[in-house]
Design a protein around this nucleic acid. Sequence first.
RNA 1: GGCCUGUUGGUGAAGGGGUUUAACACGCCACCCUCUCAAGGUGGUAUUCACGGGUUCGAAACCCGUACAGGCUACCA
Length: 550
Amino acid sequence: MSREDLAEFLFPNITKTIEDYEKLYPVRNLDENAKVTRYAPSPTGFMHIGNFLAATIDYVIAKNSGGIFYLRNEDTDTSREVDGAVEYIRHILKHYQMEPDEYEYRDIHETKGAYGPYIQSERKEIYQTFIKHLVREGKAYPCFLTQEEMDVIREGQAKDKRRIGIYGRYAKYRDLPVEEAIERIKKGEAYTIRLKSSGDFNRKFKFNDLAFGEMELPENDLDIPIMKSKDGLPTYHFAHLVDDYLMHTTHVVRGQEWVSSIPIHYELFKTFGFPMPKYIHIPLILKKDGDSVRKISKRLDPEARMSYYEEKGYPAYALIEAIMTIANSNYEAWREGHPTSSFTEFPFSPKKMSASGALFDLDKLDNLSKNYISRLTKEEVYKGALDWSQKYDPEFHEILSKYKEYSMAIYNIEREQKKPRKDYTYYSEIKEKTWYMYDEYFLGSKVDFLEYDLEEVKKILKNYQNIYNENDTQEEWFTKIKEMSEALGYAANVKAYKENPEPYKGSIVDVTNIIRIALTTLTITPDLYSIMKILGKEKVLARLNNQIAK
RNA sequence: GGCCUGUUGGUGAAGGGGUUUAACACGCCACCCUCUCAAGGUGGUAUUCACGGGUUCGAAACCCGUACAGGCUACCA
């Protein structure tokens, strides 16, 4: 019996050939410089910030070159699959304006692109066609090693300080006679298909990574599994080969943790004689943990998950800016010169990427976000707050819907000027900073005048009630406050008071603080005059009366 | 243990032999402005580029070694 027989026995239903698929998926009709990239996540139900970095770079590279950015669902590990995961990815990509040109969304029955299926579990036949070819050529074989046997091998290798893995004499089944293999399978023994590696670990090859530059790596000599026993699906490495070949990916962007797999991929592509895509291995996003630094972890670090940024309500723009700064630190300088350009116009350079991992700087993100929100119009801020609260704070959402103009007036305080206020870092902060403007929240909260004497407080509030006129200009209003302060024994000039506090009960700061507390419960708010304008006469008087009546 | 990759401030980093007394941005600190804030303004914030050696008239930059850090070492991606 021959290898041909083994191939037929293993894959009796596979009738297509590699050539058939090559015809089905011809070279893409694109410009010479157009790049084809993909975002290829596993549907595990969350998105890691590192994956987001990769996706962003993928998107920029494709769009910047007039190429294609497609989404491929890498669901070969059925045990890790989570319901709704792809739907989540779809939402994220949409939210960050990185919608793929080709995709397959089962949940909404939508698919686009001529190089599909874009879901790996639907590509089983394709993979098996390539595997069958390898078996026929004697470059892959069924392996009957059990998990227990492999554990023993690994332990032995570790003990003897040998390299770990299935290679050389540990590859027990690589030369098993075809008859015996068929017999074992007929008996129902579980098997994987392994690559029969022809590499030599002591030989090096040169590899050019677009980010790292040239590196020298040892050849792969591991008989790595290419097809799993459980469901006949390929492993990542093999799917990468087949998919990126057939889908004509030109640039693979992935995390640095993959550089150690390059020898495997190099051998795989070489075995088939396929051209390798270009690789851009991107820095890992790290996290400070005590004195040391480690890869940011979805389990330990909330900020590793994209959902963290959504929950807080960071505008998509801010996160993209922050992530682009990590990709290429000259991005900020470019942005200064191109304030209204899309990030996709940025001339991204893989070489300029840091080779060492980057700590994600939340302070920087906050700053970017704060600046961005400050440049928005009041309508845009309102929209942002409305969208965010709809999902994360329904009660606040109701209030916002009810008081649209009123809310926008709040957001407009010191906004329409050259240097606008920077109050809000993210949308969830808006409620924290404006709640007292709404009676729904204000009326139920405690008003605490701190260490101020309550009789004095009432006196000040009564006086203020008398001079308050909702039609005053800001200047008129402030002049009145000053006059009132002096009349009550408070210094109108803070500087003078600080230099010589003796003759006074306090300063105008105390007076305005008391009014501020009465109106908002807080000592820190935006400009009082603006707040009263927005609250309106009725609310202002009611809030003052409330305290006087106590 | 093996293989690979890194190492410039609190953070992202620029710089790839002399123009660096190490850019820029964020953060932090101080002061000014000021009704509290938020802003805004001014200034400060690495005597030095992990360490040791070498090459050179000259090194953060080039070479070698060491240390340290990180990644990978699954029928996970």
